[in-house]
């Protein structure tokens, strides 16, 4: 019984990570109508930067994560300015460009950091007795708490700041937003930076547990996209619930079926959604 609890709780922890990363995709999709297939690679770079700052330069984990977050944001900002900007209105180009970008980033990671997993240091050691049901690793628990705090922060930013309001206006109706005098172009680079930073921070906080490899972004990128579709394109709430659901389903599936098939569960869910409810749990289909 306690192993089931552990599996479910593991699912919830990784689910918050999926949610963070999926919110990034959703934000970029809503604000810019771009599907970012290189999202997973920003996730691994978030982890690699945090590894680099903490292991190689000796910063404390928190500082390392903040530095890596800022760096990912600026890289995203520049990528938008140089590569994505010219593709507006052309969905096909943005799909192709972000796919190529993902290959390029994977290979940069491979060359710089090598093929073997890298792990930033843990923030905390030991484990905690949870309600006398099971022992749970303290690092996982604290990762979960940080992830939840970040999710809350995201919703505050989206609901309370001018940036959040503008992005929501654009996502709701691009034409109306531009009629209201909102300059979509200016928001774009910022949204892309912000969106990929969410993936980066998700990678940075989870990497002390799982480590990071150059190809590790493919699975997470794909999973995040599945979460967005599952939750419903355009719905931030859907990303959180979809992320948690997928995290739990995957962990139970991995525990009881096979760990080699981790990513298959997401894909089966994707097919089921496409067949029965293309609008996802909370969203609308986009054209």
């Amino acid at each position: 019984m306690s192993s089931l609890f552990v599996n479910i709780f593991n699912g919830i922890v990784i689910g918050t990570i999926y949610a963070l990363s999926a919110l990034g995709i959703s934000l970029i999709l809503g604000a810019m109508n771009v599907m970012n297939f290189a999202h997973g690679e920003f996730y691994i770079f978030g982890a690699y930067f945090s590894y680099f700052f903490s292991r190689s330069l000796g910063f404390s984990p928190l500082i390392a994560i903040l530095l890596s977050l800022g760096l990912i944001f600026w890289i995203g900002f520049l990528v938008e300015k140089t590569l994505i900007h010219s593709t507006y209105g052309n969905l096909m180009d943005s799909l192709i460009i972000t796919f190529i970008l993902s290959i390029v980033l994977q290979n940069i990671a491979l060359i710089i950091f090598g093929p073997y997993p890298k792990k930033p240091p843990s923030w905390i050691i030991g484990s905690i007795n949870v309600l006398d049901l099971f022992y749970y690793s303290s690092q996982r628990l604290i990762t979960f708490i940080v992830a939840v705090l970040l999710l809350i922060l995201f919703f505050i930013v989206m609901n309370k700041t001018w940036f959040g309001k503008i992005v929501r206006a654009i996502s709701a109706d691009r034409e109306v937003a531009s009629l209201m005098g909102i300059n979509c172009d200016k928001v774009n680079s910022f949204s892309f930076g912000f969106g990929v930073a969410l993936a980066g921070v998700a990678g940075a906080i989870i990497s002390p547990i799982f480590g990071v490899t150059p190809m590790g972004g493919v699975g997470i990128g794909l999973t995040s996209v599945v979460v967005v579709v599952l939750g419903g394109m355009g719905s931030f709430k859907g990303c959180v619930i979809g992320g948690l659901l997928l995290g739990i389903i995957e962990n139970i599936g991995v525990a009881y079926i096979s760990s080699g098939y981790r990513n298959i569960f997401g894909f089966i869910i994707l097919i089921l959604i496409l067949l029965f409810r293309p609008s996802g749990l909370f969203g609308t289909t986009i054209k």
Binding site: M35, F37, L91, M92, L95, L222, V225, V226, V229, G266, F267, L270, I271, L274, P278, T285, I286, K287
Partner: peptide, 12 residues
């Protein structure tokens, strides 16, 4: 359902 869905389903 259009372009995005094909791309992400084929990637998956």
């Amino acid at each position: 359902m259009g372009g995005i869905y094909l791309s992400l389903t084929t990637l998956g």
